[in-house]
Design a protein around this nucleic acid. Structure first.
Length: 922
RNA sequence: GGGCGGUUAGCUCAGCUUGGUUAGAGCGCCUGCCUUACAAGCAGGAGGUCGCAGGUUCGAGUCCUGCACUGCCCACCA
């Protein structure tokens, strides 16, 4: 059946068809390998997108890179598991559903917890995971049979198990501390969820009258409303300005409360007045100081950051309104001394932007140091490697300055903390399942603690909970540790660090199946408790102006829109080609447009192939591709020509480079190598060179055409396999078309990735081809210089510097004539380089025999520029060659190269000068 | 207050790990071609003192130091 492909590549239809096919055929589902398995294993956990999420460019970059690496491993024969799932995303999801309720005029609290959670589940069932559907469009080759949700029963069970164990080990504790509190969400959040922002604010100086004196003591604050909860004034013991006030008391303005002057390190003499107000319930430093001096903790705000009854006359006011009133009253009563401009870093909730209020409340914390020590060691020892390496330092620095992790959230959506309070004795019981009665007092009235866990608590467990933990499963033996984690820098601390801490702790003593571990290349790694062996941190995708994409700026590029217009393959290729490690990507559509053209190029090259196959050798399919390399000229097709040997050598070199680049996550290098090879070498040269062989006349010997055809098909097949991880759709489409339903596998994704065969490297062919290309390009240049009419074929003279070069040119005479519009080639035995319309190189001189028609002034202008360039080259070369140090110290090959180059430059210069003279240039 | 990155053609970026041809690509621009795979193409061309200043070296876009501009991350100093 003849291959009929539309003239232009239309990605849309093809891509959805194959994406559906891959899923329907379950091509990427991985059953648990039984004991005795000896193939290497590659495991990758998809960073779970939020269940409320929509696909953005960051996901697309992340998933493209993962899919490239995953497909590459799969094609190289690894048992390749890519595990997908979604995160329940506590705060984000709750917020979204709450906003939805708001539109219906309903409120979460009026609804009650049970109904609300039901509603969220409802939402999840209907709309959750839209992002996974979007992923399918990208061709992400994940195992859909293993899809998980962080609140699935088994994962929730594991979360409780972890919590209880940590509690029993003393690594989780409960207590009253100052935490970051979001008054909008009305919940505690972790340090990481607070974003600091420099804002121009004020520093107010307030004076407090010292009781029993006429003096005042002046303090500075950026949050004057908190003074209502002041418990003391602190001065530094060494600060002589205040020595005489030690032990005295001040009268707190507005509240008319007496509070002591204490000495504490909290007050630094250099800052401001050297005296500082102490508000234990509203500032972490003050809280510590309060503990040291046994001060009362006076909380003056409620959960919404409105002033409470402790705030006296200000009760009921919002904190910012209270601030205004307090300042007003202080000013009126003569206590406000100064108001200074001040730049302060205020913390905001990363989700809603509300200014964080430090709040004293009872929360659950993970005691982090013991976990962090191990997590640090895992990276320091190299059991986990982080790429690019500079993130290693960042990670270790963070681990060195880590604080206990507040894991409780005053939310309703999430994993509820497995702890119960006894109504009788107020004892808190932590248990895997709801206890029937209080173990202390026997009371049966037990109520579960209402807090839920930080989302990252459960996602930090995923590397092992998705593999069946706490059971000891075969999946764990095979797939744990996972091989790699590919993720964005943003969640290095949120997620990556926590997975390392939890993994090292809970999988301690775990051993991967020895045979698999060895086959996978981890035989010498001692520590199998780590959640992954490598971490690759990728860049951020920004907009074309390098701005961070954000909804508020309105500069978000929707990947699905880009895909719609340019195709998934082109979009994937763009991201891969721009993903040089370490630098952010400024996403630029014009690049994608260029790669759409690349897809079209591949498409049309395929049309060309099919056109010839159908005519010359219908039903021809690629031969055995042992080891992924090509076998050309086999099957009695005759000896390989120069272009065959050349392209085969080039292909193998490119395959080596691409494999090498992928092994080190140099995605841009892999993509560019393939691009340059396919377009610049395969299409521009190889296809052009074999056209005469393919265009055999009826009645002539068909064998040459058949050989060319076979080579073409083999090479195309191999190139598609090489490209497949980056552009899975177009490669699948053409690959399937080549095999016409008789493919050796269900998908190109399941056949072997090309590996370089060093035996196919052919330096001679590459050198000869370079000369031939140089000759053809030289003639084209000369034709342009001489203004030869486009269709006129011209005779050329060639002086080959060596007989072998002459032979080579003679053998490829047809190519020169065809590709450079040459009428005939005349070989001469004398140098031609000084003639007008001629060019001399190290290997040959060539002269285009044509009476030139030249625009004299334009030509003179051009020659003048060329001369300047040459002069520069000659100048620097002469300087170097005149330098004894250079001659003595530089490697001989470099010197030799320079000498030869100088000779060539000299000839060119002389020629340029004589041309100018001839034209009468000034 | 610490830490990290970027600065190369009009635009977007490679190249720097390992110093050595006349510094590359895509897009855009100019010239000429509808050459039966592809005008989303082909051939040719213009365009860069590689942010600035020093240093190391026979030789620096590449290594070192400082500076400038720019972006990001971390940080409980009122």
């Amino acid at each position: 059946m003849p291959h009929e492909l539309p003239k232009a590549y239309e990605p849309g239809a093809i891509e959805t068809r194959w994406a559906d096919y891959w899923i329907k055929e379950k091509l990427f589902s991985v059953p648990t390998p039984p004991p005795g398995e000896t193939r290497p294993v590659f495991t990758l956990l998809l960073p779970p997108p939020n269940v409320t999420g929509r696909l953005h460019m960051g996901h697309m970059l992340n998933q493209t890179q993962m899919d490239i690496i995953v497909r590459w491993h799969r094609m190289r024969g690894f048992i390749t598991l890519w595990l997908p799932g979604t995160d329940h995303a506590g705060i984000a999801t709750q917020m979204m559903v709450e906003k939805q309720l708001e539109k219906e005029g309903k409120k979460r609290r009026e609804m009650g917890r049970e109904k609300f959670v039901e509603r969220v589940w409802d939402w999840k069932k209907h709309y959750g995971g839209a992002i996974l559907d979007q992923m399918k469009r990208l061709g992400a080759s994940v195992d859909w049979d293993r899809e998980y949700f962080t609140m699935d029963d088994n994962l929730s069970h594991a979360v409780r198990e972890v919590f209880v164990r940590l509690y029993e080990e003393g690594l989780i504790y409960r207590g009253n501390y100052i935490v970051n509190w979001c008054p909008w969400h009305e919940t505690a959040i972790s340090d990481l969820e607070v974003k600091h922002e420099d804002v121009a604010g004020k520093l107010w100086e307030i004076r407090y009258p010292v009781i029993g004196t006429n003096e005042f003591i002046t303090v500075a604050t950026t949050r004057p409303e908190t003074m209502l909860g002041d418990a003391a004034i602190a001065v530094n013991a060494k600060d002589e300005r205040y020595t005489h006030l030690h032990g005295k008391k001040v009268l707190l303005p507005l509240m008319k409360r007496e509070i002591p002057i204490i000495t504490d390190e909290l007050a630094q003499p250099e800052f401001g007045t050297g005296a500082v107000k102490v508000t234990p319930a509203h500032d972490p430093n003050d809280f510590e100081a309060g503990k040291r001096h046994d001060l009362p903790e006076i909380n003056v705000m409620d959960a919404r950051a409105h002033m409470n009854q402790n705030a006296g006359a200000y009760a009921g006011l919002d904190r910012f309104e209270a601030r205004k009133r307090v300042l007003h009253d202080l000013r009126e009563q003569g206590y406000l001394v100064a108001e200074k401009d001040y730049v302060l870093a205020i913390g905001k909730c990363e989700r809603c932007g509300t200014v964080i209020e430090p709040r004293l409340s009872e929360q659950w914390f993970v005691k982090i140091q013991p976990l962090a020590d191990r997590a640090k060691e895992a990276v320091e020892s190299g059991e986990i490697t982080i790429v690019p390496e500079n993130y290693r330092t960042i990670y270790l620095n963070w681990m060195n300055n880590i604080h206990d992790w507040c894991v409780s959230r005053q939310l309703w959506w999430g994993h509820r903390i497995p702890a119960w309070t006894c109504a009788g004795c107020k004892e808190v019981i932590v248990a895997r399942e709801a206890p029937a009665k209080c173990p202390k007092c026997g009371g049966a009235k037990l109520e579960q603690v209402s807090d839920v866990l930080d989302t990252w608590f459960s996602s930090g467990l995923l590397p092992f909970t998705t593999l069946g933990w706490p059971e000891k499963t075969r999946d764990q033996a095979v797939f744990y540790p996972t091989t790699l984690l590919i993720t964005a820098y943003e969640i290095l601390f949120f997620w990556v660090a926590r997975m390392i801490m939890f993994g090292c702790h809970f999988m301690q003593g775990h051993e991967q199946d020895a045979a698999i571990k060895k086959a996978s290349g981890w035989g010498d790694k001692k520590n199998d408790s780590v959640p992954f062996r490598q971490v690759y941190i990728h860049a951020l995708v920004r907009d074309a102006e390098r701005q961070k994409m954000s909804k508020t700026k309105g500069n978000v590029v929707d990947p699905l829109d880009v895909i719609e217009r340019f195709g998934t393959d082109a979009t994937r290729f763009t991201l891969a080609a721009m993903a040089a490690p370490g630098t952010d990507i400024a996403f630029n559509e014009s690049r994608t447009d260029g790669y759409r053209a690349f897809a079209n190029k591949i498409w049309n090259a395929a049309r060309f192939m099919f056109m010839n196959v159908d005519r010359i050798e219908p039903g021809l399919r690629p031969g055995t591709a042992e080891g992924g390399c090509l076998h050309m000229g086999v099957g009695g097709f005759g000896a390989a020509t120069l272009e065959d040997r050349w392209i085969l050598s080039r292909f193998n070199r490119v395959a080596a480079e691409v494999n090498d680049a992928l092994a080190t996550y140099r995605f841009h290098e892999a993509a560019n190598r393939i691009y340059d090879f396919f377009w610049g070498e395969f299409c521009d040269w190889y296809l052009e060179l074999i056209k005469p062989r393919l265009n055999f006349e009826e009645g002539a010997d068909k064998r040459t055409a058949q050989a060319a055809c076979a080579n073409l098909v083999n090479l195309f097949d191999a190139s598609l396999r090489l490209l497949h991880p980056v552009m899975p759709f177009i490669t699948e489409e053409i690959w399937q078309a080549i095999y016409e339903g008789k493919a050796p596998a269900k998908s190109i994704a399941l056949v072997q990735y090309p590996q370089a065969d060093q035996k196919q490297f052919d330096l001679a062919a590459e050198t000869e081809m370079a000369i031939l290309q140089d000759l053809i390009v030289s003639v084209r240049n000369l034709r342009a210089e001489l203004r030869v009419e486009p269709k006129v074929k011209v005779p050329i003279q060639v002086f080959a510097h060596e007989p072998s070069i002459r032979t080579m040119i003679e053998h490829n005479r047809g190519a020169v004539e065809r590709l450079a519009s040459v009428e005939k080639i005349m070989f001469v035995e004398t140098s031609l380089s000084k003639l007008a319309g001629a060019r001399g190189t190290a290997r040959f001189d060539v002269h285009v025999v044509y009476e030139r028609k030249i625009d004299v002034s334009a030509e003179c202008e051009r020659l003048k520029k060329e001369l300047e360039k040459l002069d520069k080259g000659v100048g620097s070369g002469q300087r170097q060659l005149g330098n004894e140090q250079f001659l003595a110290k530089a490697p001989p090959a470099v010197v030799e190269n320079l000498r030869r180059q100088q000779q060539e430059l000299a000839v060119l210069k002389e020629k340029t000068l004589s041309k100018m003279k001839e034209l009468g240039c000034q």
